Simulated assay, not measured.
Amino acid sequence: MVWGDQLKSFWKEQATCLLNGTDHSRIGTRPSEEEEAVNRYRIQSQNRGASVIRIKNKGILLGKKTVSTSQLYEYLLHQQFLIKQGEKLYQEERLEKRLAKMVEGELILDRSAEIEGGTLLVAEGKGSGDARLKGSYYDRLSALKYAERWWDDANPSYQSFDVDCTNYISQCLHAGKAPMRGYPDRTKGWWMKGNNWSYSWTVAHALRWHLSSSKNGLRAREVANPDDLIPGDIICYDFDGDGYWQHTTFVVDNDEKGYPLVNAHTTNSRMRYWAYEDSTAWTPEIKYKFFHIED
């Protein structure tokens, strides 16, 4: 099951409330404060002669964890409200970090991450402190925002290159506060300082091997399948299958089947399907490496 399938019906229920003015309450899934906020939004809209005529919801997975029979998800909810007020038509948008819990595939909780300090507490008996989706030094949301802001342009704060794919990926990771190490040795670690940087900052082959071997600073865990990745993770490409890694992409979303959509530089790309079969560099011998950036 794709992680967001159960949540889609929940988001649809919220949309129905706003569009039709009906009350909605799913016991156990939404705190009363959020129920009240939805109703206040609807009443406020009515009082100013505005109506929500269309809502689009999209979830972007930021983190996941399995505890016993429970699955915990941290995600970003992107909402778009098309609003009509008299002759004026405009779109309101929101980005909200949320937390959800499923037990054996059933959604039992979904709420704002702002509640209880941004953690999801799950009563699992002893050791329940481990059953939290915690903030960490890798800020995926900031990395994603950077990836979206600069996918088709060069940030003047950094050096740019004709072959810019790995430099762009490193900038995304840096925006997410991934820790650097190794300065000033260009052959060690992953770092950028002034007009100097490590080979792993700019060279796809070097970054691929850094991600495989690093035990501190920027660290990653190799996973077997592309659908094991979440936004903020990395894919490395050996187009010829000869052991030399030529390209790197940044996961920004997943398609309806749970497979990655990526942003990249050199050929600037946004929300491109991860496999790159449409690339002129693709060959039948292509190899991939899938890296989950450690939080």
Rank of each mutant, 00 (worst) to 15 (best):
M1K: 07
D5I: 07
Q6R: 09
Q6E: 14
L7Y: 10
K8T: 10
K8M: 10
K8N: 08
K12I: 12
E13R: 08
C17Y: 00
L18D: 09
L19C: 00
L19I: 14
T22V: 15
H24R: 05
G28L: 02
G28T: 07
T29Q: 14
T29S: 00
V38R: 01
I43T: 12
I43W: 10
Q44Y: 09
Q44K: 13
Q46C: 00
G49S: 08
A50L: 00
V52D: 06
V52G: 05
G59W: 07
L61E: 04
G63Y: 04
K64H: 02
T66F: 01
S68H: 08
S68K: 13
S68M: 06
Q71W: 00
E74C: 05
Y75K: 00
L76N: 02
H78L: 13
H78M: 13
Q79Y: 01
Q80L: 11
L82M: 11
Q85M: 12
K88E: 11
R98I: 02
A100G: 11
M102A: 09
E104F: 01
G105Q: 07
G105C: 07
R111H: 09
S112V: 06
S112R: 05
E114G: 13
E116F: 09
E116W: 01
T119R: 11
L121N: 14
L121K: 14
A123R: 06
A123P: 01
E124I: 14
E124V: 15
G127R: 01
G129A: 12
A131W: 03
L133N: 02
L133G: 06
K134T: 06
Y137C: 10
Y137V: 14
Y137G: 10
Y138T: 03
L144E: 06
L144T: 09
A147L: 03
R149P: 00
R149Y: 01
D152T: 02
D152S: 10
Q159N: 10
D164V: 03
C165A: 10
C165E: 04
T166V: 06
Q171I: 01
R181F: 10
Y183R: 03
R186T: 15
K193F: 12
K193R: 15
N196S: 13
S198Y: 10
S198W: 07
S200F: 08
S200N: 07
T202V: 14
V203I: 15
V203N: 13
A204C: 08
H210D: 08
L211D: 03
L211H: 03
S212E: 14
N216C: 00
N216V: 06
L218W: 06
E222L: 04
E222V: 01
P226A: 11
P226M: 06
I230N: 03
G232N: 06
D233N: 08
D233H: 07
D233Q: 06
I234N: 03
C236P: 05
C236I: 02
F239Y: 15
W245R: 01
Q246F: 00
F250E: 04
D253E: 09
D253V: 02
Y259F: 15
L261T: 02
A264Y: 04
N268M: 12
N268P: 14
S269H: 01
R270I: 08
R270P: 00
R270Q: 08
A275L: 05
A275Q: 11
A275R: 11
S279K: 05
A281F: 08
T283G: 09
K289T: 07
F291Y: 15
D295Q: 12
